[in-house]
Simulated scan of single mutants.
Amino acid sequence: MAEQTAEQTEIRTTERAGPPGPPLPPEPAKPDSAVIRDALGVGIAVGLSGFAFGVTSAGAGLSLLQTCALSLLVFTGASQFALVGALAAGGNPLTAAAGAFFLGVRNAFYGLRLSSLLGYRAAVKPFAAHWVIDETSAVALAQPGRHSARLGFTVTGLSLYALWNLTTLAGALGAEALGDTDAWGLDAAGPAVFLALLAPMLTTTVERVAAGLAVVLVMVTLPLLPTGVPVLLAALAAPAVLFAEGRRQRAKGTRDAAEGDPA
């Protein structure tokens, strides 16, 4: 009796759910050549900005050895720029290092996701962890399978690490040869690179408005407020624009509903 009841329940459940649909097609494999092309594009484009870091670091007063050691051992551009930027502004070295450290913590969260995706053996993970940064994570996560993810991660990491360190050395040597980097305006190299990397990511009107408002806030408050405060104020641009966009969307929805009401 119990078996009959279970069978009837299963039949009724199947009837409600309807017939099973066709099986999903397997995700298409991505050619290795396409993965390598994309990975090299990212690695070369971002790796060249190591020159700007070398110049900025030398301008902040770090020696050639210190500058190259940062790129070899830290290897996360945002944290490196944050560290030398704080030092150049006269900040305490411990405070500057702490700020750079917390900025780089996001890489640990990338590592949690990449660990299961790449599936490296325990002996390989410590070496792979050194290459877990924004760019390698983005390329790996964009791939359809483990093989492509490993290939993209490896090619991006290898090309970016090699080029970043070579251009860091070139930038630091060039800055030493030029002497006073402030006289050449090379202290702006770091921020210019950040803007160049950010610009292609601003694909919507809301993102462009938020970025423009942030620039305006920094330009207006920079001569008036202490070091660091203008940047904190600029961060308020994003929630302010999102709030305004939310109100605009709600008002538009109300108007559309009123126009569609036959009464």
Rank of each mutant, 00 (worst) to 15 (best):
W164V: 01
L83R: 12
P230F: 02
A257C: 09
H147L: 08
T205F: 02
G152Q: 11
A189F: 07
G104T: 08
A88R: 11
F102P: 11
P23K: 04
L166C: 12
L40A: 07
S49E: 01
V215K: 00
A263M: 11
D32R: 12
A142N: 12
G21T: 14
A263D: 15
E10V: 14
F75E: 05
T204K: 08
G91S: 12
R150P: 04
L158H: 00
A214G: 07
L198I: 14
A69Y: 08
P25N: 07
L173P: 02
S115H: 15
T221I: 02
R208P: 02
G104A: 12
L72I: 15
V55S: 06
A29E: 11
A210P: 13
L65H: 03
V139C: 03
A88I: 04
T13W: 01
P200M: 03
V241R: 12
P144Q: 09
G90W: 14
A45I: 01
P230I: 05
A129F: 09
P191Q: 02
A192Y: 03
G190D: 01
R16Y: 14
R255H: 07
T167L: 08
L186K: 13
T203G: 00
A89C: 06
A142M: 05
A244V: 13
T203I: 02
Y120P: 00
A52F: 09
G111Q: 15
G246D: 02
A258D: 10
T95M: 13
D187R: 14
H130C: 04
L141D: 11
P144R: 06
N92A: 15
G90T: 12
F75N: 03
L114P: 08
A108G: 11
F81D: 00
V74G: 09
L186D: 05
P262Q: 05
A214R: 10
Q249D: 09
T67I: 14
V35T: 08
G47F: 03
L236P: 03
D38T: 10
P230C: 00
A188V: 10
H130N: 02
T181Y: 07
G91I: 04
P226F: 02
R121P: 13
